[in-house]
């Protein structure tokens, strides 16, 4: 009995991974997309993102401290991530007060009413985004055109997005290369497919997410839009690059809390999102369907978790 040792159950080592490391990893993966939007939308992108992040963190802190009366956990990075994702899903000329309302809805209703991180059913950033889209349809759908390093915020020049033009049956002038690089109108973070794919590659290498959800969404969307849009390969490909498809598939749908837990479940979830997105884009009232598709499949996630179990070792068929 010489020394007072610590006794704990095995295992005695840990991978060193943590929730905040996962969250900051996703944030790092979002940097390329942020840089592109800074370049394309100038000061507006910076103002919107900063406001959104600060508002989300502040609301999380206030709600945890004064309403739920628990130890605030703003350092885990989840509120920052929600803030960034919310900002990436709105136009860069959105007035500050609208962003703050969006942040309040995202954190307050999307996350904290369910009990905070880990308990929410819907992706908080998307709850905020959809709330803003329904409440402020005009502001949320006047998209600024890319204007490299512009210093205009609220008075940026606006135009319809390629996706909107497609919806109205007008011809799309933008080139596929513009869509890849981000030289098109749209929400703050969704414009450059290449930057988002770089983030995807980073997250795959760091093993923050697996390939299942993004790949199944993109493949399903491609195949389905190829079928319903008259067997047009380039059109189907553009469907992947336009709007929130890449951002949604890579960063929004893969949110840990609101996506299924098994690889098989993830693929079912991804197929659902891909199908719903194209259905909404093709037949619905809105030109963009990614947010709604993800929210609908978020609602289906508990069901998928219940019925799709991991593949067990030595499973005995009954």
């Amino acid at each position: 009995m010489s020394q007072n040792f610590i006794v704990s159950p095995s295992p005695h080592v840990h991978s060193g991974n943590s929730v905040s490391k996962c969250m900051y990893g996703v944030l790092i993966a979002l940097i390329p997309a942020f840089l592109v939007s800074l370049y394309c939308f100038g000061i507006g992108a910076l103002v919107v993102t900063l406001t959104s992040v600060l508002a989300c963190v502040l609301f999380e802190y206030l709600i945890q401290k004064y309403l739920l009366k628990v130890k605030p956990s703003i350092c885990d990075g989840s509120a920052i991530l929600t803030g960034v994702l919310l900002a990436f899903n709105v136009p860069s000329n959105l007035p500050i007060w609208i962003i703050i309302i969006g942040a309040l809805v995202a954190i307050g209703i999307g996350k904290m009413t369910f009990g905070g991180l880990g308990n929410n059913i819907f992706n908080p950033a998307l709850v905020g985004r959809v709330f803003l889209l329904i409440s402020f349809p005009v502001q949320m759908t006047t998209w600024p055109v890319p204007d490299p390093l512009s210093m205009n915020y609220l008075d940026a020049e606006t135009a319809a997005t390629p996706l909107g033009l497609m919806k109205q049956g007008l011809s799309v002038e933008a080139m596929t290369t513009d869509m890849l690089l981000g030289n098109i109108g749209g929400s703050l973070g969704e414009i450059s497919a290449i930057a988002l794919l770089i983030g995807f590659a980073y997250m795959l290498i760091r093993r923050i997410i697996t390939w299942h959800i993004p790949v199944s969404i993109l493949v399903t969307a491609f195949v389905f839009s190829f079928l319903v849009n008259g067997f047009d390969v380039e059109g189907a490909f553009q469907q992947l690059l336009l709007g929130g498809m890449m951002l949604g598939a890579i960063f929004m749908a893969t949110d840990y809390v609101t996506s299924p837990m098994t690889p098989r479940g993830m693929i079912i979830y991804g197929i659902g999102i891909g199908l719903l997105t194209i259905i909404i884009r093709r037949y619905g009232a809105y030109p963009e369907g990614m947010s709604f598709a993800i929210l609908i499949m978020n609602a289906a996630t508990p069901l998928i978790n219940k019925y799709v179990k991991p593949k067990r070792f030595g499973e005995v068929k009954k």
Partner: peptide
């Protein structure tokens, strides 16, 4: 007297299954 420190889930059933406890 405590002769060691338990550092696992704060649950008697788990601690009891693991070992004798923090004291002799």
């Amino acid at each position: 007297k405590k002769v060691n420190t338990y550092n696992g889930a704060s649950n008697c059933a788990i601690e009891a299954a693991l070992y004798s406890g923090e004291t002799g």
